[in-house]
C-alpha cells in the first residue's frame, strides 16, 4: 500500500497539466469567443461568412482531429519539424506539444463560446440599445455600460455547461503525449497493474467539477439580483 502516495503524486502532477490547459483555454477562449461573436454578426459579409465557415468546421469535426491537425501543421505546411519549432521558440518538445494542444483547445472553445455570446447578445431587446441611443451614448458605451452585463447574466448557465465540459475534454491532450490527469492514471494502472488509479482520477475530476459548479452557481446567484 506504499504505492498510494506515489500514485497520488503522479496523478497530482497530471492534474497540474489538466489545470494548466483548462486555465489557458479559458483565459484566451473567453475574449476570443466574444471577438468571434462580433465577427459572425458583422455587417461586413466576407468577415461574417469566413467566421460562419470557421465555426462550421470547428463544430463539425472532433476536437481530437483538430489537435492532430494543429500538430501536423508546422511540419507539413511550413516545412518546420516540431523539434526545429521547439528550438526556435526555445522551449522543450513537451512544451511545444502543450502549445499545439492549447491552440486547438482555444480555437475550438472560442467557436463554441462565440455561439453562446451571439445568442446572448441577440436576446437583448432592441429597446435597450434605443434607450442608450436617445441618452446620447455611442455604440461602445451602449455595449459596455448597458448590454454586456445583461449578456453575461443570460449566458452564464450555458457557459457553465461548456466550462464543465472543458474540464473533461482536457483528457484529449494525451493524443500528443501530454500527461494529463487521465493519462497519468493510465500510466499508473499499467505500471502498478491495479485499477484503483482510475477511481482516484474519477474523484479528482468530480471534486474539481464540484468546486466549479459551486463557484459558477454562486456567480449566477450573485448576478440574479435583478430580473430581465
Amino acid at each position: 500500500m506504499d504505492n498510494i502516495q506515489d500514485i497520488l503524486m503522479e496523478l497530482a502532477e497530471g492534474f497540474g497539466n489538466t489545470l494548466a490547459l483548462f486555465v489557458v483555454t479559458l483565459l484566451f477562449a473567453l475574449p476570443l469567443g466574444l471577438l468571434f461573436a462580433f465577427a459572425s454578426m458583422s455587417k461586413f459579409k466576407p468577415l461574417k461568412w469566413f467566421m460562419k465557415t470557421l465555426i462550421w468546421i470547428i463544430r463539425g469535426t472532433p476536437l481530437m482531429l483538430q489537435i492532430l491537425f494543429v500538430s501536423f501543421l508546422p511540419n507539413y505546411v511550413f516545412k518546420t519539424p516540431t523539434k526545429d519549432l521547439a528550438a526556435m521558440l526555445n522551449i522543450t518538445i513537451n512544451e511545444t506539444m502543450f502549445l499545439f494542444v492549447a491552440l486547438a483547445f482555444i480555437l475550438n472553445y472560442a467557436c463554441y463560446f462565440s455561439e453562446i455570446y451571439r445568442a446572448g447578445i441577440e436576446a437583448i431587446p432592441v429597446g435597450q440599445y434605443e434607450a442608450g441611443q436617445v441618452l446620447g451614448l455611442n455604440k461602445n458605451q451602449i455595449f459596455s455600460k448597458i448590454v454586456l452585463m445583461q449578456v453575461v447574466r443570460r449566458i452564464l448557465p450555458p457557459m457553465s455547461n461548456e466550462i464543465i465540459t472543458l474540464v473533461k475534454d482536457t483528457s484529449l491532450a494525451q493524443v500528443l503525449g501530454i500527461v494529463d490527469l487521465l493519462n497519468a492514471a493510465k500510466h499508473a494502472v499499467n505500471h502498478y497493474v491495479i485499477l484503483t488509479p482510475f477511481l482516484y482520477a474519477t474523484v479528482f475530476y468530480l471534486l474539481f467539477n464540484g468546486l466549479l459548479t459551486l463557484l459558477l452557481g454562486w456567480a449566477e446567484k450573485k448576478l440574479s439580483y435583478y430580473k430581465v
Binding site: P125, G127, Q128, E130, A131, Q133, V134, L135, G136, I146, M149, Q150, R153, Y226, K227, V228
Partner: peptide, 20 residues
C-alpha cells in the same frame, strides 16, 4: 448629429429601463 439625442428626450412605451 450627436446633439440630436440631447435635443430630444424620449420616454418609451415599454419604459426600456436598464434592468441591472
Amino acid at each position: 448629429s450627436k446633439q440630436t439625442g440631447l435635443t430630444f428626450g424620449m420616454v418609451f412605451q415599454n419604459f426600456n429601463l436598464f434592468p441591472q
